[in-house]
Amino acid sequence: MLKTVKLRAGYGKVMILQGVDFHIGKKEIISIIGRNGVGKSTLMKTLIGEVPVSSGSIEFAGKDCTKLKAYERAQLGMGYIPQGHGVFPLLTVEENLLVGQCINGNKQTTKKHMELVYDYFPRLKERRTQRAGTMSGGERAMLSIARILIGEPSLILFDEPSEGVQPNIVELIGEIILKINADLGVTILLVEQNIGLVQQVSEKAYVIDKGLIAHELDKAMINDNETTKRLLAV
């Protein structure tokens, strides 16, 4: 589904990613963990195309998309949810959702998609006409997920969906991730600080450190709090 080879990227002359190699198979849920500032968000931004690749390559859905622009990658079916949710504050909930329809080619959003998303998030249906800027952190998190789902992505890149969200909503997000994966067969790459959420959803996790994938954890290791604590300790 997604594969990077010796990916180097960063800002100006400062390389944050120093040769990242990893891959995700179809329908997998994989987490990326690491300390603050190691470059988790930079990796996500490089994958969607917001940070330019300086060497190495990114392959998505069997296509080399190292040179593609962000909107072209999105139209291939990559759905990116930025850290801090990134809703459009002055657009209504419904308008925010409609913007998501460009993902995976420019097809029209049918009523069916809307209904499906409102099914997942009944709260958004109540708030259809509310401006996104007036919503709570949890509601924004849900909106950012719903907006991606409208476009039927084949891969979702989540950057810390738990940020600014209370614990019971984090758990709800975890359930939604599992449900999207099971019902719709969407592949998921999750960047998270919240180990609870990582343990709840992922089969496999990569630990990123010094610009490289430093460790690969299986389910048992993820669930072992000693291991994760040691790897994330400063």
Binding site: G49, Y71, E95, V99
Partner: peptide, 21 residues
């Protein structure tokens, strides 16, 4: 109109969602 308002508010997010900003 929708795409241009979205781009105006946040061009980065808009293009990450598939809009050619």
């Amino acid at each position: 109109g929708l795409h241009s308002r979205a781009t105006m508010q946040n061009a980065v997010i808009a293009r990450n969602l598939g809009i050619n900003s």
